[in-house]
Design a protein around this nucleic acid. Sequence first.
DNA 1: CGGATGCGTTGCGCATTACGCGACGCGGTG
DNA 2: CACCGCGTCGCGTAATGCGCAACGCATCCG
Lengths: 269, 269
Amino acid sequence: MSRNSSAADTELLGTGRIQSVERALRILRAFTEPGQRLTVAELARRLDVHKSTASRLAATLVSAGFLERGGENDPLVLGPQLVRLGRLAVSGRSLPEIARPVMDELAAQLGETVTLSVPDAGQALTIGQSEGTFAVGLQNWLGKRAPLHATSDGKVLLAFGAATLPAGELSARTPDTIVDRAALDAELAQLRERGWGSSRGDFELGLNGVAAPILLPDGTCRAALCLSGPAYRVRSDDLAALAARVAFAARRIAALLDLAPPLPDPQDA
Amino acid sequence: MSRNSSAADTELLGTGRIQSVERALRILRAFTEPGQRLTVAELARRLDVHKSTASRLAATLVSAGFLERGGENDPLVLGPQLVRLGRLAVSGRSLPEIARPVMDELAAQLGETVTLSVPDAGQALTIGQSEGTFAVGLQNWLGKRAPLHATSDGKVLLAFGAATLPAGELSARTPDTIVDRAALDAELAQLRERGWGSSRGDFELGLNGVAAPILLPDGTCRAALCLSGPAYRVRSDDLAALAARVAFAARRIAALLDLAPPLPDPQDA
DNA sequence: CGGATGCGTTGCGCATTACGCGACGCGGTG
DNA sequence: CACCGCGTCGCGTAATGCGCAACGCATCCG
């Protein structure tokens, strides 16, 4: 019998991996949209296996709570067990790991590169980056630092008290960099008011960006989520609209962070 | 060969379920604590299979991103794929489903019954319930309604604007029920201030409760999370401490809710 | 009304595949 | 250095999961 001899089965399974399990997991991974419903036949097509195989895989996943069906037959949705495990999986993961899926989604939707920064040694340290879809875009900035007063994310970190400006002169990266502390304070006040920060060529000419804070429930700022791209795509007129999307994603990440620890220490009443 | 002939394998697999997949999923379900790390040998023991089998199952789960290992070998933790799927799984689930795991955890920790209520027709409708561990406790209240002014969750819904009191006299469920509207308003104001509500025998003599709001990011109140029990266990002196736990769990649920929809509608810049 | 299409499930029989076994390499401990 | 426990890897076997096809059930349409 040739069984499932179809070409290379997408990714030929390496040493010591179990076929049926890989297929089951590929069923789970087939879900990409929230609230998505997939039929057995559809899954069979995607996995390139027989209906019956997909049916049995699905039945197994359902009985373990990883999938769920609305009625007796037909629609498959992600199950409650995944809610539980998702909650657990978030714990013990670092901020960039938690933020990654959301950042990827945002970068894919808007096409521009998204970065995640935290304060470090008086600068903004980039600890996460999701590439956009354009050929022209932000270089790899992971692990690099940028001045707080000349970037959108740096300004956010300043405005929300996550970072403080080192003493001394404010260096001028470009002619448009804000070097006057009073002017900077005014911009930070406005930033705090509207909830997001921007940068228009003040770090590098032709580079624009918007950033929003990732706020913990107690109001402290944990990091800044930033979207940047060339000024001819990330236009000044669009900054507000983009900022809304970035701020939304930032709140989503904050919500994920809030899930991290379980309920508080076990001391009863 | 007897293969894995060990007794009944916990739950004997029904019709058309796939053994290896079930085992793989049982590995995932073995994780119950946040940040938990399990070794291959430990998993083999729990599943009652040979080390090599557990190793192969784990390898498959790792290669699909459902598990992850710190170093080359050794520690297994839940993987990033579960973070992604957990986020998706939350979407399209109803509030009680989302809240369930958190409520169960709280009920198990404190021993008392936890309920979830939303406003409905001028009353508080209970849409979720996790039983406590004591023999004496709240009866099944699912689907039932209670007056807004005489319960802790009802007061929360009132105070946070999720519900409005129907016109007319406030009925006295017990001698301790607040029937004076001015007195009620005063209590609601205080409730809003401190963030949680209580009820001491004003719904039923001997029954105490504390409740906290489940607040959406925009500040609106979606539901109330309530813990209740007999007054000799849920003592007046302990209400504040209990309320802190309930409020914490409520915020956790709110965070889960905030994950529900994906990023906003696809309209680009 | 009934043939046709597409869905999901179940029984069957075969051989693929996943299993248990044991060997090996490693790291920590007495 | 022997010992233990860990994780992985070949091997050979047979148990198991697969494809096949038949069935029941909806929906659609001539």
